[in-house]
Every structure is written in structure tokens, then in C-alpha cells.
């Protein structure tokens, strides 16, 4: 049971043409500020010892400019007990709807793909659809339509098509890649496109 390193995971996403938010490891507050280029960023402490980053207080979101220095040192203090860790800086995606696409292996039926309302709503609403891999376009669409939150996730034809295609790509990646579990959570849908913001692959 091991967490796949962030950029190794990101490379795999690229291979399957799944978009992810621009990210970089940073070694100092200055580096983080430079990466922000004046915009808002998110800082995450990444450690194999803390699988739930936000639950462990290892995420600081929506900071910019002068706030970055203070946030960086606060994050370092909280991350101290999860050593070794690295700090990942990501461009902040504004607004949008958070969804989760994931994969998990069932003892009986093998690899399964999941779509749900994402982010903090995953556990609160447990609104998700599940299918055995492989799936086709029709099944991907039926997953969206099964959700109570379907109108939120895919309010029009274009976004429905985009999400369905994304599910298909993720399902192919999950089936083709050598991983046991997959969480793309959240993927933020915004401005007619989407970005995977957090990637968790477990080998």
C-alpha cells in the first residue's frame, strides 16, 4: 500500500489526457510566491503518513502575495509530525463545482469506477454512482443521470458530455494503470472546462 508520488500520478493523467491544475513542489515561501505570479494559490503538505490532507490540516487555500509567507511557515509547523513531507503549490481554481471520480477494487467484481459530488460533499451526501470496469459512453452518461446532483454537475448537454468523457478517460486510466485505488477529488468543473486538483493513487 503506497501512495504514488504526485508528479508521477500527474504524468499518468497527462497520458490519458486528463487535465490537472498547474502544480509545483516548492522549498520556500519565496519560491511559492514566485510560483503564484501575483495570483491566488493553494499550498499542500504531501506526506505518505497523512492520507487525508485536509483532515490533517495540511492544506491552505486561496492565499496570495504577502499572505503566502505566513501561511507557508504555519503549514510547515503543522506538517512537522508527518515528516518527511514536501510542499506542493498549486494555482487556485476559482469557483466551479467539485466532483470526485475514483476507482476501487471489489473482491468479487474487480475494478469499479465511481462518480460523485465531490470535495467536502462526498461524505455528507454520499451521492455517487458506481460501475464495473470497463464502461462505455452510455454507461458514463447513465452514471451522471443517476445522481441527485446531476443538474449541479452537468447542467447542460455540453458539460454532460465533458464529464462523461472524463469518466471514460479516468476509467481507462484506472483499468490500465497498475493501481489499487484512485481518487481524483476534487475535480473542479469551471468555465466550460475542468481541472483535477487533487490526485491520490494508491498502488
Amino acid at each position: 500500500m503506497a501512495l504514488v508520488e504526485y508528479f508521477e500520478a500527474e504524468r499518468l493523467l497527462k497520458k490519458y489526457k486528463i487535465r490537472s491544475v498547474e502544480s509545483r513542489y516548492v522549498k520556500s515561501a519565496e519560491e511559492a510566491e514566485k510560483f503564484s505570479a501575483g495570483g491566488r494559490i493553494v499550498l499542500k503538505a504531501v506526506s505518505g503518513k497523512a492520507l487525508h490532507k485536509s483532515k490533517s490540516g495540511l492544506v491552505v487555500a486561496g492565499i496570495s502575495g504577502g499572505e503566502i509567507g505566513k501561511a507557508y511557515s504555519a503549514l510547515e509547523r503543522r506538517a512537522a509530525k508527518y515528516r518527511p513531507y514536501r510542499i506542493l503549490a498549486q494555482k487556485m481554481v476559482h469557483g466551479g463545482i467539485e466532483i470526485i471520480i475514483g476507482g476501487s477494487e471489489d473482491v468479487q467484481f474487480g475494478k469499479m469506477i465511481l462518480l460523485g459530488l465531490g470535495g467536502i460533499y462526498v461524505e455528507a451526501f454520499k451521492d455517487f454512482a458506481l460501475r464495473v470496469c470497463p464502461i462505455n459512453m452510455e454507461e458514463a452518461l447513465s452514471m451522471i443521470r443517476q445522481l441527485r446532483s446531476r443538474k449541479i454537475i452537468a447542467p447542460d448537454r455540453a458539460s454532460e458530455k465533458m464529464v462523461a468523457e472524463l469518466i471514460l478517460k479516468a476509467a481507462r486510466m484506472y483499468q490500465g494503470g497498475r493501481m489499487k485505488e484512485l481518487d481524483l477529488n476534487p475535480i473542479i468543473i469551471h468555465d466550460g472546462t475542468y481541472d483535477a486538483v487533487d490526485i491520490r493513487m494508491i498502488k
Binding site: 500500500m1 470526485i100 475514483g102 476501487s104 465511481l114 462526498v122 455517487f128 458506481l130 481518487d183
Partner: peptide, 16 residues
Amino acid sequence: HSHTAALAGSHQAYEA
């Protein structure tokens, strides 16, 4: 270890 595995229990797998 993941949200997905936590949601996709064996009962959910059968239903799916």
C-alpha cells in the same frame, strides 16, 4: 485509504 474505497463497499458493488 481513499474516499472511493470508503464509499464503494461490497453492498454498493452488488447494487452497481
